[in-house]
Amino acid sequence: MTDAKTNPAKLNPMVKLGLELGPIVLFFAGFRFFKDQTFQILGRDYSGFIVMTAIFIALIIATTAILWKLTGKLSKMQLMTLVLVIVMGGLSVWLNDERFIKMKPTLLYLAFGIMLGIGLLRGESYLKLVMEETLPLQPAGWMILTRRLCAFFFGLALANEVIWRLFSTDTWVTFKTFGLTAALFLFFISQSGVLSRYAIEEGAPEND
């Protein structure tokens, strides 16, 4: 009998992608539809952005629960994203202030950058700990990729701060939905040279 904790179930990549990106896409679509509307709830006026933030929180909780149910585990990134969405999104809804949810990507990418940076200072790749099974690389490759991703996360945090502070909510929502996702995708595409140079062939030992 298979132990779900030691042998998590394999999930169709498209299903996983849909569960992870679905709430973001639905938030974007809902915001575009409700952005010019005001809703009165319990005697208070809420913008369409705040209402969609509340719905987004519920969607993230639901999809994360489904992912856990289907796979038997959650990554540190998924857990940290869930916590920050609940905390920062909850503050935005509770205080009726959109700034908190806009700061969520900044805090998330800063946290990732700091964690990777701490590992680098210790001469370790914390990225390897979470991606080794899906991306087998030699130790030197892990260190190069970790340094670059660490800098990239700090760059994303800075970019989010610039966008939400200096541009409109419409611009930030588009940036959050498409810009950040595209940036992460393009980053890993741009690292194809490192991935191929330091890849470990199946059955081959790692170089020290």
Rank of each mutant, 00 (worst) to 15 (best):
L19K: 03
F188H: 00
V51W: 04
P23M: 04
V130Y: 09
N207P: 03
V194A: 09
T171D: 06
T2A: 12
K176D: 14
F154H: 05
I200S: 02
A157I: 08
L116W: 11
Y126Q: 02
T38H: 09
K16Q: 11
V83I: 14
G113T: 00
E20L: 03
T177V: 11
L121Y: 10
F153H: 13
L145N: 02
L70D: 08
M77W: 01
Q78K: 07
T64L: 05
I118G: 07
Y198A: 00
F167S: 06
W94Q: 05
M115E: 02
G43S: 10
L184I: 14
S192Y: 02
I55L: 15
L135P: 06
A183Y: 04
L184E: 12
T146E: 03
K69E: 05
I189M: 01
L42R: 06
T53L: 12
G123I: 08
M131W: 13
P8Y: 06
T71R: 12
I55E: 12
F33Y: 10
L26M: 12
E206A: 15
R44M: 07
V51E: 00
F33C: 09
S190K: 00
R32I: 12
L121M: 11
M115T: 10
F33T: 11
R122D: 10
M131F: 05
G22C: 08
A159M: 07
A151H: 03
L156C: 03
M103I: 06
K76A: 15
A199S: 11
M80F: 06
L116P: 04
M1C: 04
L120A: 12
L121N: 15
L127T: 11
P205G: 03
M1T: 04
P23E: 04
R122T: 04
Q40A: 15
L129E: 14
A54H: 00
L107K: 06
N96W: 09
F28C: 11
K176N: 13
V51D: 01
G113S: 08
G117M: 10
F167Q: 15
N7E: 07
L129H: 11
T169Y: 12
P139C: 07
A157G: 07
A204W: 03
G123F: 09
T38L: 07
D45N: 12
A58Q: 13
P205L: 11
E201F: 03
A4K: 15
V93F: 02
G90L: 06
M52V: 08
L149F: 12
T2F: 10
N96Q: 09
T181D: 02
L74H: 08
K76F: 08
E20Y: 05
K35I: 04
L82T: 15
G18K: 03
M14S: 07
S75T: 14
R165G: 05
D3V: 08
W172C: 07
I114W: 00
G117K: 13
V83A: 15
L137N: 00
F185A: 15
G18L: 02
F187H: 03
I24W: 13
I57V: 14
P139K: 01
R148F: 01
V194N: 15
